[in-house]
Computed example of a mutant assay.
Amino acid sequence: MFLQLKNTTIGYLTPLIEGVETSLDLGDICLLIGNNGVGKTTLIKSILHQISTLKGEIFLNDKNIKNLSNKEIAEQIAVVFSKSPIPANYTLTDLISLGKYIHYPYYFELSTSDKIHVEEIIESLKLTQYRNFPLNQLSDGNLQKAFIGRALAQNSPLIILDEPTTHLDEENKIIILKLLRNLAKDHHKLILFSSHDWRLSKEFADKIWIINEGKLDAGITEDILLKHDELLNPQLFKINKEFFPPQISAPDLHKEMLYSFLQKNFSKNLSVYKFEFKEGFWVISANNFQQKCTSFEDISKLMQNLH
């Protein structure tokens, strides 16, 4: 295994994640998920040896990271954080090319093959028209893609990305996620990335690491999702104390939409009613009353007439 965490406790002065026992190999693409503040970025920084583990060991290509120099770690791991300092007076091409210099002294010129690789990365990220733009003239989304491009140019076996799809629209998120999967499968890279867009990202990830209640649960994506019911089922948030919901029998998405609609529009006790979604219709019933509605607009009119 290329990356191994053995009985590892992650944190600063106090533990955030305890007893981590997991590993990933080249060719894997792993999605890291968890709520804000649970330790995702701290875990990434521990793998980079920017933060020391509180307990246990982390191995990179069978070598303890504690015994590796910063340069050796940088040769093995390319990283993109959600917020990175923007170099002054750099163009997009300059930034992506910077990834190549980890392999050379700073005064070296890039080889022809390096320059071709940089151009291929720019094209794959659909940034060709911006290649000579100063970084301060790029949108947040294109700037994020440029930093990802720098990591790709580094050509390290492990690429770690902290929220790589931040600031990106749906189309560009898919471009990045497809690119990451291609790197893992066709170029035998290990990809570890965190994301709040996990419902989309899971379609591209083989494995998931989920941090929950101070523990890290790791495994095949679908196994992890089925173990964590809270990830798949929508949560019905009660934000109106005067609202008492009806009984709702419907698919999860329809149930969530109805609950949201009723709570926003009716501050009253609806617990005597039952709403069932059948064959594209809502059937509302109470005692001897029953009515069909085809839309939320119909439901709104009905409930106003009943109250």
Rank of each mutant, 00 (worst) to 15 (best):
L3R: 03
Q4S: 13
T9A: 10
I10Y: 05
L13G: 12
E18H: 01
T22G: 00
S23L: 06
L26H: 05
L31C: 14
L32G: 03
N35G: 12
N36L: 08
K45P: 11
S46R: 04
L48E: 05
H49F: 04
Q50V: 07
T53F: 02
K55P: 06
D62T: 13
K63I: 14
K63V: 15
N64S: 11
I65V: 15
K66A: 07
K66H: 13
N67C: 11
L68F: 04
A74N: 06
E75A: 03
I77Y: 00
S82M: 08
P87Y: 04
A88F: 08
A88K: 09
Y90L: 03
T91C: 07
H103Y: 04
F108N: 11
D114I: 02
E119I: 01
E123L: 07
E123W: 01
S124Y: 01
L127R: 13
T128Q: 10
T128F: 05
Q129G: 01
R131E: 00
R131I: 03
P134T: 05
L135D: 02
N136S: 02
N136H: 06
D140P: 08
K145Q: 02
N155F: 01
S156C: 14
L158P: 04
L161S: 05
L161D: 07
E163K: 12
T165S: 14
I175T: 15
K178W: 06
N182Q: 10
K185A: 10
K185V: 15
F193I: 01
F193V: 00
S194C: 07
H196C: 14
S201R: 00
E203A: 08
A205F: 04
I208N: 12
I208D: 11
W209L: 06
W209D: 00
I211R: 03
I211D: 03
G214R: 06
L216V: 12
L216W: 08
L216C: 13
I220Y: 08
T221I: 05
D223P: 06
L226Q: 14
K227E: 15
D229R: 07
D229T: 14
F237N: 12
F237I: 15
F237Y: 13
F237A: 06
N240D: 15
E242C: 13
E242W: 12
F243G: 09
F244S: 12
L253I: 15
F261H: 09
F266P: 03
F266W: 12
K268N: 12
S271A: 11
V272C: 09
Y273S: 10
K278E: 11
F281M: 14
F281R: 09
S285Q: 10
N287I: 14
C293D: 03
F296K: 09
F296Y: 15
E297Q: 15
D298N: 12
D298K: 05
Q304K: 13
L306P: 04
L306S: 05
